[in-house]
Design a protein around this nucleic acid. Sequence first.
DNA 1: CCAGGGAGTGGGAGCGCTCTCAGCGTTGCC
DNA 2: GGCAACGCTGAGAGCGCTCCCACTCCCTGG
Lengths: 382, 382
Amino acid sequence: MPEQPPRPTVEADPAGSRPTLESVAERAGVSRATASRVVNGGAGVREALRRKVEKAVEELGYVPNLAARTLVTRRNHAVAVVVAEPGSRLFSDPFFAQHLRGIGRELSAADNQMVLMMVEDQHDYERVGRYLAGGHVDGALLFSLHQPDPLPEMARRSGLPFVVGGRPGWPGAESDRDLVYVDSDNRGGARLAVGHLRALGRTAIATITGPLDQTSALDRLDGYRDVLPDGDPALVAEGDFTPDGGGRAMAELLARRPGLDAVFAASDAMASGALRVLRDAGRRVPEDVAVVGFDDVESIAAWTEPPLTTVRQDIEEMGRLMARLLLLRRLAEAGAGAPGGTAASTPADPFAPGPFASGPGRRTGGPTSVITPTRLVRRASA
Amino acid sequence: MPEQPPRPTVEADPAGSRPTLESVAERAGVSRATASRVVNGGAGVREALRRKVEKAVEELGYVPNLAARTLVTRRNHAVAVVVAEPGSRLFSDPFFAQHLRGIGRELSAADNQMVLMMVEDQHDYERVGRYLAGGHVDGALLFSLHQPDPLPEMARRSGLPFVVGGRPGWPGAESDRDLVYVDSDNRGGARLAVGHLRALGRTAIATITGPLDQTSALDRLDGYRDVLPDGDPALVAEGDFTPDGGGRAMAELLARRPGLDAVFAASDAMASGALRVLRDAGRRVPEDVAVVGFDDVESIAAWTEPPLTTVRQDIEEMGRLMARLLLLRRLAEAGAGAPGGTAASTPADPFAPGPFASGPGRRTGGPTSVITPTRLVRRASA
DNA sequence: CCAGGGAGTGGGAGCGCTCTCAGCGTTGCC
DNA sequence: GGCAACGCTGAGAGCGCTCCCACTCCCTGG
C-alpha cells in the first residue's frame, strides 16, 4: 500500500468528497442561495458579493454536482443517440462517425451531452426503453430503425421528444405528425444521377438497388423510375449496399441485358463491386458502361478505378439538423398550448415530387421533418 | 388521434411527474425502504411483500430516477468517451465506429452508458474538463491524444480512472504507471508485413509511413526497420494516412528508386493511393511491385485493384479491452490498500521487442496496458 | 418625516433515492 | 418458560442543489 496518499485531516479530501455549494457559500460568507445565484449566472447579486463567491469557487475548485441539479430542475442536459442494428453497414461506412460529429457539434453548442446507445438484441431494447423512461436524458435521436420499430413508441411513451434519422418506412409513419425525421433527398439524388446518365446519351440504364426493405433504397429506386418511367424491369437488380452484393447484381444485370450502357448503383460500395465485375467482363468504364454511385464516401468513390461519379449528401449536416430539430422540439414542447397555430394545415405528403424544406419548418408549434439536398459529384466513371 | 390510449385518471399523469418509489411503496402497502430493497434486487425481503411491490412497480410503470440515486450512491453508471481531433481520419475510416461498438458492448454488459465527447478547440477542452471534474461519469476513455495532451492530466486531477486508446507518445508517458493504454501491435504487424515481402524474395522494399508525429506511424516504421535494419533510407517516404498522401509518397519513392519491387504502406488508404500511382507508372502489382497495407479496412482493402494484402487488427476487440480495463481499474481503485502486491516489479518497458500481454495484467492492484495482436491477411497485391 | 416600493439576501422546504439503525415478531436454546 | 439471537421492516436522516418566500435595507415620493 505504498502509493496510498496520506488521508487528509478532515473535510476537503482531494479525491473523495468534492466541495459543495455549501462550502463555497461558507467560505464566501454568504448563503447557499446567493452562491447558487452566482454559479448560475449571478443575476441580481451585488458585484461585491458576486466576486467573493467567484473567488471561493476558484479557490475550492468547485464544480456543481449535476445529479443534484438534475434532481430538482429535471433537466439532464443530455440527449440519447440510439443506433439500432449496429451490425449493419453503419459500421463499415464512415457515415456513422460523420453523423455523430454533426450531432455532437450542434449539441455541445447548446451545452448538451450525447449518450450513445446501441441496440442489437431484444435485451438491448429493454435496456434502452428503461433508460429513456428513466428520465436520464432530455430527448432522443433514433437511427436506422427497423421496419416497425418499437423505439419511437418507447420514446413517445416516455414523453421524450425525439427525432428520427432516415425516413421511417412502416405504414402510418408518414402521417404521424409526431414522427419528425431528417433524411437526405434520396429520390432527388437518384433523379440527378439517372438524369446525368441519360444526358450522356445512354439508352440502356440499369440500376442496382439497395435492400428494398430500407426506405433509402426504395426512394433511390423511385428516383430512378421518375426519370425512366417506362424502364425495362430487367434492368433493375437488388443489391445489399455491400461491394459483394453490388458485384453480384452487376453480374446478373450483365447476364440479362448484355447491351446495357449505364448503371446507377444506389451506393458507392455497391458501385465499387460493380466496377470490378464490369472490368472482369471486359467492359470499359465509362466508354462501354457509365457508372454512377451514391453517397460520395471519399475513401471509396475517389479511389476506385476509375474514380466514381456519385451523388453527394451532407451527412454531417444531417446530424446537425437532427440535433437542432430536437432542440427546437423540446422548446416547442415546453411552450405548448399557447401559440394559436391554425389547426387547418392539411397533413400534406412531404414526399410529393419536388418539395423539400431547406430548414426546419413549423407545424403546430413543433418543427417538421426535413429533407436535405443532394448533388452530383462528377468524376471519371460517368 | 385514434391510437391514443385513454388518459389514466388522476396521479400518474402521462408526461408529467412519473411515479416515485414513495408511490410504489404506498400502493404496495410497504415502506419506501422496503420498496427500495425490492427494486434493487430484493435481498432480505419476504416473498409476499416482494411480490406486492413488484406488482405495484409493474402497474405504475415505475422506473427509478437515476439522478436521485446517483446523488446518494455517487455512481453514475456512465463512462465518458473522449475523442480528440475529430477532424482527423477517425471520421473517414470506419475505425471509430468499430471502436465504439466494442466499447459499447462491453460497457452495456456492465450496465454502463457511454457519454461521447468530441474535442476540437480550446473551448472544448474546458468543457470536457469541467464535465470530467463534475463527477458525471465514473471513468473516461481517451482517444487519439495529441502529443502532450492535457486530457490525461485533467482526468487524473478529477480523480477519475481512465484508459487511453493508442500508445501515448510524449516523453515520460511510457513510464507513467497511471497511464494505462490499449494499442494494437503496430510494430509486430509491420514486421509481419515486411517479413512477408522479404519472404516473397523482394529485395528493394520501400515503406510509406504515416505522419511521424503519431505513435502508430512511428511504431510501424520501427517494425519495418526491425526486419530491414540496414535498409536504404531513400526507400522511406512519409505519407499522411490518406490516399492522396500515399500516392504522393509513392511517386516520390518511384522517382528516387525506380527499381523498387515492394512497398509496405502503413495504412490501407495510403496503399490505395499508391496502387493508383503504380498503375499509372505502368508497374504491375504484384508482379513488378508487391504491395502490403495496414488496417484491413474492408471497404478499401478488399476492393482495390488488385485486392490488398494487409495487416489486420481487431479494432472492436481493442474497444472492448479499453472498456474492460477501465472497469477493472475502477474496481482496483475501489478496493485499494488491501492486496499485498509485491511492490518489486521493475517498471519494465512494455515495448521490448516481442512481449505483449494477451490479457489485462495487474500491477499494484490495477491493470496494465495491453497490446493486441495483429495478423497478415493475404490477398492479391503481395 | 414616514409609508411604499424595489432590490438583494437568507431561510427552508423539498427533488427521489439509499442506508443506517431501531423496533418488532419469531425462533431456538438453555 | 425465559431470554438471546436473528430476520424483516419502517422511520428518518441526509445526498447537493434550486427555488419560493419572507425579510431587511435603502431609496423615493407624498
